[in-house]
């Protein structure tokens, strides 16, 4: 029975996360537009964008390499696999035990690497520093007895999420099904970061299907709240610009390192 429940959580999570990721992306875009005094595209805009992309045909150039062919699917695959490992409404997923937070960061790095390869000359390799910030923030959380380090590590994670806002750049390098896959992967990546932060803040709930509703409500509330905070920060600091993105990443890395040091000092004392 426990095994069945665990697989039920895994399958539900797999079904839930893609639409939730698109909703979160729509929420972030709408909030950002409202903060800048505009009407905004609406919550369902990412769904419409994906539907429109799926309605168009994919065109590849004659010089398309192997990466251009399999790249978008590989990006979506790695991001979906990372999303399956992140706890969302329950921590009892059958897939939770096969990979830890380092694995999630590794899978996201794989997706980012392939996405940068697809971007070609427009790629910004500095974005590859986002996941190391996550690694170090996670390392800070694993130090036993560290309490004050946790908020700093969370701040590092939030800045990482802020720096990873999916920009409109992908539209120039992909089309059709490829564009749909890349758009979904970008939204999923953001949701993975938000879920990681939410999981660190969420209280422990007992196991069992009767607590799924509470867990779901908590997860949704936290994702919305963190999205709001991140969007306000993003509106204040235009992190979509490459220079700002690099600054945000550097700040995230520095904060993560600080979290490790504070955590270690706490543990030593």
């Amino acid at each position: 029975m426990t095994l069945l429940l665990a697989w039920g959580v895994a399958i539900l999570q797999l079904l839930l996360l893609p639409p939730a990721a698109l909703l979160a992306a729509g929420l972030a875009e709408t909030l950002r537009a409202r903060l800048l005094g505009m009407r905004g595209p609406g919550l369902l805009m990412p769904f419409r964008a994906i539907a429109a992309a799926l309605g168009r045909q994919r065109v590849r150039g004659p010089d398309a390499s192997l990466v251009s062919v399999i790249g978008p699917a590989l990006v979506l695959t790695a991001t979906l696999a990372a999303a399956c490992l992140v706890p969302s409404f329950s921590r009892d997923s059958a897939l939770a035990g096969i990979g830890d937070a380092l694995t999630i960061a590794g899978l996201l790095t794989l997706a980012r690497l392939i996405a940068l390869l697809l971007d070609g000359a427009a790629a910004d390799p500095a974005a590859l520093f986002a996941e190391p910030a996550v690694l170090i923030a996670i390392f800070s959380g694993l130090v036993p007895g560290a309490n004050a380090a946790a908020p700093i590590g969370l701040a590092a994670l939030a800045i990482g999420a802020l720096a990873l806002v999916p920009g409109p750049r992908m539209a120039r390098t992909a089309s059709g099904r490829d564009l749909a896959m890349l758009t979904l992967a970008a939204a999923l990546r953001r949701l993975v970061f938000l879920s990681l932060i939410a999981d660190r803040l969420r209280p422990n709930l007992p196991e069992g299907a009767e607590y799924w509703a509470i867990g779901f409500a908590l997860w949704v509330a936290m994702v919305v709240a963190i999205t709001l905070v991140c969007t306000v920060a993003e509106a204040a600091l235009p992190a979509r610009l490459p220079a700002r993105r690099r600054e945000a990443l550097a700040a995230g890395l520095a904060l993560a390192a600080l979290a490790v040091l504070v955590g270690l000092a706490e543990a030593a004392s």
Partner: peptide, 15 residues
């Protein structure tokens, strides 16, 4: 996940 992605998003494309 790759199988799911391919199955869900399968559509003929122009080479």
């Amino acid at each position: 996940m790759a199988a799911i992605a391919v199955l869900l998003l399968r559509r003929p494309s122009v080479e």
